[in-house]
């Protein structure tokens, strides 16, 4: 049994202008200790998927259907009191904006200790000394002094380290990281990615990494789920996705990413591959394949019938009518 099983998850939002279908039947699993990247552009539903797992999407206006099984229990059936025991304890979360997700009027030590006092019933003093240990673990120098500082006294990279310390305080079995390095500079991003890799080896948590940066995916992930317009379009091992992408959207995305070192291959400036057109609106139900409007290979079939997610090669799922089947015989 996988640690996390997402089964035909649907998250729809009722708005005055109609229903927005943010997530439309997404299924994937995360095994114990595994790093899975969920990739896609803004509005593809990757963050809403994470929020749905954590029960942070208020219902109404949202309507969630399907199942999210964490260690065998369906989180969608749990009462709020049970979810509170899970959040921050078994499932940790790192958000994109370290400034807006820390409380500006509380010392960072208290914010790290809060989780420990709530879930592990530590005393105030024990929580503080554990907070110092955690700040040490995430590589903040002079942890003993920093624990009594406020978020505004820390730089962006340090704040993200504090967020990681909070998320890891109770040794979660699953860590959800939503664009953990997007707001950071590249040299600081390199530090944080190194830290996350190192901590994963030491603590063995599974990581669900949500990002739009394929470079970060290549460095961190073991398996990749590609999302488009609220749907999963492809899932495979990280090496497979990059070496052998099957869905036209995945191929387009990989082609559109500028690669460092291109000037060594072409002395002239090169044009980037584009994906023409725009993401379809999620306010109207999409008939046929969601990518058909932008796909170079789309046919009448694609415009009429939505392709199912199928295993087209061992451990390689694609939602495309024209993806080749490749099974070793």
């Amino acid at each position: 049994m996988a640690l996390l099983e997402i089964d035909r998850l649907q998250t729809h939002f009722g708005t005055p202008d109609g229903v927005v279908r943010a997530v439309e039947g997404v299924s994937f699993n995360i095994e114990e200790g595994e790093t899975v990247a969920v990739v896609g552009e803004s509005g593809c539903g990757k963050s809403v998927t994470a929020m749905s797992i954590l029960g942070l999407v208020p219902q109404p206006p949202a309507r969630i259907a399907g199942a999210i099984r964490f260690a065998g229990r369906n989180l969608l059936d749990l009462p709020e009191s049970e979810m509170r025991k899970l959040r921050g304890n078994d499932i940790g979360m790192i958000f994109q904006e370290p400034m807006s997700s820390l409380n500006p009027v509380l010392m960072v030590g208290r914010q790290i200790g809060e989780t420990l006092r709530l879930h592990q019933r530590l005393s105030r003093r024990a929580a503080e000394s554990r907070a110092i240990e955690l700040l040490d673990l995430v590589g903040i120098p002079e942890a003993r002094r920093r624990v009594r500082e406020y978020p505004y006294q820390l730089s962006g990279g340090m704040r993200q380290r504090v967020m990681i310390a909070i998320a890891l305080a109770c040794n979660p079995r699953l860590l959800i990281a939503d664009e953990p390095t997007t707001a950071l500079d590249v040299t600081i991003q390199a530090q944080i990615l190194d830290l996350m890799r190192d901590l994963k080896h030491r603590l063995g948590s599974a990581i669900m990494l949500i990002t739009h940066d394929l470079g970060v995916v290549a460095e961190m992930a073991e398996r990749v789920v590609v999302m488009y317009a609220g749907r999963k379009v492809e899932e495979a091992a990280a090496g497979d996705i990059f070496a052998n992408p099957q869905h036209p959207y995945t191929r387009g995305l990989l082609g559109a990413v500028p690669k460092l070192g291109c000037s060594l291959e072409h002395s002239e400036r090169s044009t980037l591959a584009e994906i023409p057109g725009l993401v379809p609106s999620l306010r109207k139900p999409i008939v046929g394949c969601a990518f058909a409007g932008r796909c170079p290979k789309a046919t009448q079939l694609c415009r009429e019938l939505a392709p199912a997610v199928e295993e087209k090669a061992p451990h390689h799922q694609v939602a495309c009518h024209f993806a080749e089947r490749k099974f070793p015989t």
Partner: peptide
């Protein structure tokens, strides 16, 4: 330059982490 993540898992680089 070395800090920029490269979208290719088969490439391994010696990173200079500042």
């Amino acid at each position: 330059l070395s800090a920029v993540p490269v979208p290719d898992p088969s490439v391994r680089r010696d990173r200079i982490v500042l």
